[in-house]
Structure formats: structure tokens, C-alpha cells
Nucleic acid binder design. Structure first.
Length: 661
RNA sequence: GGGGUGGUAGUUAAGUCGGUUAUAACGCCGGCCUGUCACGUCGGAGGUCGCGGGUUCGAGUCCCGUCCGCCCCGCCA
């Protein structure tokens, strides 16, 4: 309250000063004082130093808003010197040298310096002196060369605008954090979210959203050019438990019943295929009531695609084209003509991940057959014995102490829970320095070194356990070494490494039986359909993920269009006929009426934007994101609803924590 | 549900072993300054140390609880 009053005082003082300045000026030079009044017809503060006009019909009363801007704040260059311009924008910085005042004016296109020269601008000067950071203003003036004072750091640094008139659209309270100091982020995450509209003014975030917008536009252009139809699916859909938790929306017209917010348009896009839409896409919001992460928000945006008569290649080709075009147009990066493909089994065997980062080597070396008969208990008991061989040129930092830390890492439950980490440092002449020397014969050690390509100075890191533990532990270790040894930069590969991972298992076995790895509409490989009856765990899916630098940015599959196959999959998942009919009856019914074979994919628009922008959090590419607890600090959402509305929806509180409990 | 980490002026941070008036930078307010560009310079104001309780002669600091931000595991078909 006092703060606001202060600002208003400052502002009205400015009016008085500028009036005084106007009154004291040589009136013969000015148009009548009434024309140079301090408030424009639109109610904005304005100070005008009238130009000598050839046509008296131009009314100086007209606001600069009416005039409109002639350029954005990133447009002017040396070639524009002499031009008369109108700029709108925010006061980025002010440098008040007393008589001479510099203002940098910012909009989303750039920053331009404005100079208020008392010798030339007269009464405008007094108003200019009242400007503060983030005032929203209009400036009218002449583009002049900066002469010997050019600023090579700014695209507009050759020139500046010599102000003739200034109009303050609105003043600004001192900001809760600095918008102009963008390079060094000077705000806490909480404040950034509370004042998101200010955070979004920062040039770096503006760049992210320009990029995101271009990506969305390119998606529409590229896919539409290829004959895809942009179609919409409902957000309010039938609640089907299983999979991600749904947000529920109570139905007033159907008391006690709920819609679910769609966690994906999956079923509807398949029905589009049944409907003959052939090639569909949508830039679509999805909602999942799961815990948040740095790269997971409860609502996020997918580029959703489905095509009829699909094969994996026919889905992947247009996606590759879209990605290639986006990287070319937005980042000016040429991507390879075809992205490499790895089966899931290969990806796991070589990288211990279904989304491997292939920007650096450090692939797993399988030692199982070499050490199985070694007689060493640790190895004879393990189904999978694999190693990472850190090349000599990168291995120097791996001291005993560092290896000790890595051992603790792989023992953690979340990194696989390995029982330990065996290691060996290769010395001159190939001799091992390792706790294993007393357990392994020289022949076996030599054979391991040879297979791993170990040379003097190399370090071997070995995990022996079951499939899951060995691969997860070494996969975690591989990424840790990537970061701590800076392996990506040292590898020197192109910075964008795309990869298709294919042939995922159709099911995962859990305590409660089989669950879909992808979703229950994913088609098994044609040659694996028979296995559905005999060994579901072995069935591979016609599913594919698109991976970029170790991040899953999309996933899709060929769908089941045969009701007999769909029935077998449902049965394997343990659904009985009643459940199937209740959840998916309408889909199976649709499949009775001539469904085309079909398949598709969904790409994560947020994640792709994040990676393209070089951002480290999904929040930096989502305009109004939620906190990790799923709240919006700016609006205070979620919130309670009033009793009247709750009664209308037949909703009461049950088991809600009460105050003080 | 679990693990980690943080919360001190408008903002970002420092604050030692528990001890004098809680410190700095930026921002804000006032003065000076006609070529700055993170302008400079002189001065000033500004604090519920997240909140509640406890230990103590004395708590920003130690203990217990709680709220909130962030990171991770589980979870995300």
C-alpha cells in the first residue's frame, strides 16, 4: 500500500515537473501548450516536443498508441539512421547521467537504446527522469548513429533513438526480482512461479517460448503437408482405472458420476482410424495425476499421430522428417538422413537402458562366458557379468577413493542394488592391479582385457548379478561416469544423437501378473502371436521409442486391430470378460466393423522444446507450470469450492485431514 | 509413501563454537553527474531470521514439530 502510494506520488510529481518544464520553455518554439499537455487522450502520461510540421493537420493530441509502433525493439540497424520511429516496450535499464538519460527499451524482439538529450528533447526530459525499471512506455524519435560509442554486444548497438516524445503507458512497482539480469538468474524458483508473468519477460524464457511456438507451427505445417488431418479429441473422457491416475471431474447432470481428464488421446485416435481419417495428428494436452519431476508435469503437451495401414517404418519416416525439418529450421542443424535403430534387447545389453545416451561410447562388455568357469564365487553365482572399460585417457580421475564412491552408488537400491563393484586398473605390460587378482587366473585376466579393449591405464568396472541388477547398476554407473568424466564433450560427436529403440517386450511380469509395457492396444510382432498362449514374457511388441541424448521424447506402436489378438492380450493381462466390456467394450465393438491396420506415435512437445532450448527443467518451456506438489503459486490452485457448488455436485469431504490434526 | 536439500531486508546470498546494534550485493529513496551501456559517485531507509514449541542467563545458530520451494526413489499402462 505505501509502496503503491509512493509510485503514484512519483508519477504525479512527474506530471507536475513536465508541466513546469513545458511552461518555462520558449513558447514561440512550441505549438500551443494545450497541445503539449501531460495526459494524452488515452489517459497515458505523455510529454511531447513538437516537431516542425509541414502539415498542421496532424494532431499532437493523438497518442502514440494510436500512431502505432513503427519498429520492434530488435529491428533498427545502421541503415535506419535518420528514420523517424515509434517504439513500444519496457524500460529494461536506465542510465541517468543527470542531464543526459539513457534508457534501454525491451520487447520480445530485442533491446534498443533510447537517449534523452536535454539539448534536443526539452520537456520530455523531466518525464524521462521519472522512468524506472519495467515501466511500459512509448518513445517517438529519430534513429541516430552512435558514432564512436557503438555497442558491439547489442544487435541494435550501432544506433540509438533520440527521443522526441515519451508516453508512459503504465508505471511499475519495484519488481520482486530482476528481469533484466537474465544471464545470472537472480530469483528463487518459488518467486519465479508466483510472479510467472514477470519471469516470462526474461529474454531467455522468451526465447524458449518463441522456439516452442515455432516447433508447434512447423509440426502443423509439416504434417499437414504430408496429408495429415489435425483433429481434436475430447479432454473429458470415460474413467478407466489402470495406467496413470486420472484427474476426475464430477458431473453435475449425472450425480455421483465422473469424467476423467484424458491421460492421452489413445483410444480416440484409434477410432479415427476406424472412421477412415487415415492420417491424423493433434497437438494435444494430456493429464496425469502422478507425482511430479523435473521433467514431468501433471498436464503436458503431446504431438499425437496415428496412421492407417501402418508399419513401424511408415510411422517413423514422417516423424524423422518432422524432427529433421524442425532442427534445420529452428537450430540450423542438419540431422542424418536416417536415425539409427536398436532393439530393446541390444539397448539393454550394450547400455543398460531402454533410452541409451549414445553421444559417447563406454558400452558394456559381456564377460559372462569368460568368468563363468573361473571358480570365483562372485562370478559363478551370477547370470550376467558385465563390465565398463574406462579408456586410459579418461580413467586418471578414477582413484581408489572415487571407485569407492562408485561402489556405494551401484549398491543403492535406486541404482540397481548391486552387491558390489569389482574393479581393475590395467598397468604397464597388461598386469592387473585389482582385488580380483587372487581369484582370477592370469589367462582369464588377459582374456578379459582383450575383450574389453583394455590398455595400460584403463580401468575396468565389473558388476555380476541377475539381468535386471547388472544392467541397471552398470547403466547408472555409465551415466555417472558420463557426467563426472565429461565423456560427452570428450567424445566429440555431433551433439544431437537420435535413436529408435524397437521391439520392446509386450509385457512386464510383476507380482500381480503381467502388465503392458506400453499399453494394452500395442500389437505383438506377427511372428510372436503364437507365444501369447505359451510364453507371454517372450512376446516382443511392434513398439518403438524415439530417444534423444538419453531422453525418451516419443513412443508409439502398431496397434492391435484383430479382436482375437486383442482378446488374448486382455486375457494375459488378467482382465475378465466383464471388465473388458466395461472398460473397452466400445473399442472392441468398433473393431467389429472393418478396422484398418493402424499405428502411431506420440512425441513430447515439452521435452523436445526443453532439449532444443537447452533448458534443464520442463518448467522453462511450460508457460504456467505447477510446483512439485502440483500447485500453482500464482493463482493459488488447487483450492476448495464453496458448499453450494459441492452440494450441486453431490460431493462431500470424507476423511479429509482437519485443522490441527 | 520414502530419501536428500534449502527457507535470513523487496531480491539473491553470508552469518564461525550459542554471546555487542544480524552483514553484503542488487533493488528502493534523496543529492551530484551531458556519452552511458551491469553508468559512476555521496548519503539514507528497509528485518515476524518460514511458522509453532522447547533447551539456555542468552537462539538466526542447538532440539522437537510443522508449512513451503527444489532434486531423487516409488509412481508415470
Amino acid at each position: 500500500m505505501p509502496k503503491r502510494a509512493k509510485v503514484q506520488a512519483r508519477t504525479s510529481c512527474a506530471v507536475a515537473v513536465s508541466r513546469r518544464a513545458l511552461a518555462s520553455a520558449n513558447s514561440s518554439v512550441f505549438t500551443p501548450p494545450a497541445l503539449a499537455t501531460a495526459t494524452s487522450c488515452t489517459g497515458h502520461l505523455v510529454a511531447v516536443f513538437p516537431r516542425r510540421r509541414t502539415r498542421a493537420t496532424v494532431s499532437p493530441m493523438s497518442s502514440l498508441l494510436e500512431t502505432g509502433r513503427s519498429h520492434d525493439c530488435g529491428a533498427l540497424r545502421g541503415r535506419d539512421v535518420g528514420a523517424s520511429v515509434v517504439l513500444f516496450g519496457w524500460v529494461h535499464r536506465r542510465r541517468d547521467l543527470g542531464a543526459l538519460i539513457f534508457i534501454t527499451l525491451r520487447d520480445r524482439f530485442g533491446i534498443t537504446q533510447v537517449v534523452f538529450d536535454p539539448d534536443l528533447a526539452g520537456p520530455v526530459q523531466a518525464l524521462a527522469a521519472t522512468l524506472r525499471g519495467e515501466f511500459c512506455v512509448a518513445v517517438e524519435g529519430t534513429v541516430v548513429s552512435r558514432g564512436s560509442n557503438i555497442n558491439p554486444q547489442m544487435p541494435t548497438g550501432e544506433i540509438e533513438v533520440q527521443a522526441r516524445s515519451l508516453e508512459v503507458f503504465s508505471s511499475a512497482d519495484p519488481l520482486p526480482f530482476n528481469v533484466a539480469d537474465d544471464a545470472e538468474l537472480d530469483a528463487s524458483e518459488a518467486n519465479r512461479l508466483k510472479y510467472r508473468y514477470l519471469d516470462l519477460r526474461r529474454p531467455s524464457l522468451q526465447r524458449n517460448f518463441v522456439l516452442r511456438s515455432r516447433l508447434a507451427t512447423l509440426t502443423r505445417i509439416t504434417l499437414a503437408d504430408m496429408g495429415f488431418l489435425e483433429l481434436e479429441t475430447p479432454y473429458m473422457v470415460k474413467y478407466t482405472p489402470g495406467g496413470a491416475r486420472n484427474f476426475l471431474v464430477p458431473s453435475r447432470l449425472n450425480p455421483g458420476q465422473f469424467y476423467a481428464l484424458a491421460e492421452s488421446p489413445q483410444i480416440f485416435k484409434q477410432l479415427f482410424m476406424v472412421a477412415g481419417m487415415d492420417k491424423y495428428f493433434q497437438i494435444c494436452r494430456c493429464f496425469r495425476d502422478e507425482d511430479l519431476r523435473n521433467d514431468r508435469q501433471p498436464e503436458f503437451t503431446q504431438i499425437d499421430v496415428e496412421i492407417s495401414y501402418a508399419t513401424p517404418a511408415r510411422v517413423q519416416a514422417p516423424i524423422e522428417a518432422l524432427i529433421r525439418r524442425s532442427w534445420k529450421d529452428i537450430l540450423d542443424v542438419e540431422l542424418p538422413a536416417e536415425f539409427p535403430r536398436l532393439t530393446w534387447a541390444e539397448a539393454m545389453a550394450r547400455y543398460g537402458s531402454d533410452k541409451p545416451d549414445i553421444r559417447f561410447g563406454l558400452e558394456f562388455v559381456d564377460l559372462t562366458d569368460l568368468v563363468r568357469e573361473s571358480g570365483f564365487r562372485m562370478f559363478t553365482d551370477a547370470a550376467h557379468i558385465k563390465a565398463l572399460c574406462v579408456p586410459a585417457e579418461h580413467a586418471e580421475p578414477l582413484t581408489r577413493g572415487r571407485i569407492e564412491k562408485l561402489t556405494e552408488l551401484v549398491k543403492k537400491r535406486e541404482s540397481g542394488g548391486a552387491k558390489g563393484l569389482a574393479w581393475a586398473r590395467i598397468g604397464e605390460g597388461g598386469t592387473w592391479s585389482s582385488p580380483l587378482t587372487k581369484n582370477l587366473s592370469p589367462e582369464i585376466m588377459a582374456a578379459i582385457s582383450e575383450r574389453a579393449g583394455a590398455r595400460p591405464g584403463s580401468v575396468l568396472l565389473i558388476v555380476a548379478d541377475n539381468f535386471h541388477v547388472t544392467h541397471q547398476a552398470l547403466g547408472t554407473l555409465r551415466l555417472e561416469l558420463r557426467d563426472s568424466l565429461d565423456l560427452v564433450a570428450k567424445a566429440g560427436l555431433p551433439p544431437w544423437q537420435f535413436l529408435w529403440v524397437t521391439d520392446f517386450p509386450l509385457f512386464e511380469k510383476t507380482d500381480k501378473g503381467y502388465v503392458s509395457s506400453h499399453h494394452p492396444f500395442t500389437s505383438p510382432r506377427a511372428d510372436h502371436i503364437a507365444l501369447l498362449d505359451t510364453d507371454p514374457a517372450q512376446v516382443l511388441a511392434q513398439a518403438y521409442d524415439l530417444v534423444l541424448n538419453g531422453n525418451e521424447i516419443g513412443g508409439g506402436s502398431i496397434r492391435i486391430h484383430r479382436s482375437d489378438v486383442q482378446a488374448k492380450v486382455f486375457a494375459t493381462l488378467g482382465l475378465d470378460e466383464a471388465q473388458i466390456q466395461q472398460k473397452f467394450g466400445f473399442l472392441l465393438e468398433a473393431f467389429r466393423y472393418g478396422p484398418p491396420p493402424h499405428g502411431g506415435i506420440a512425441l513430447g512437445l515439452d521435452r523436445i522444446s526443453m532439449l532444443m532450448a537447452g533448458a534443464t527443467s520442463l518448467r522453462d518451456v511450460i508457460a504456467f507450470p505447477k510446483t512439485q506438489r502440483g500447485t500453482d503459486l500464482m493463482t493459488g490452485c488447487p483450492s476448495g469450492a464453496d458448499d453450494e457448488q459441492l452440494a450441486e455436485l453431490f460431493i462431500g469431504h470424507r476423511g479429509l485431514p482437519t485443522e490441527g490434526s
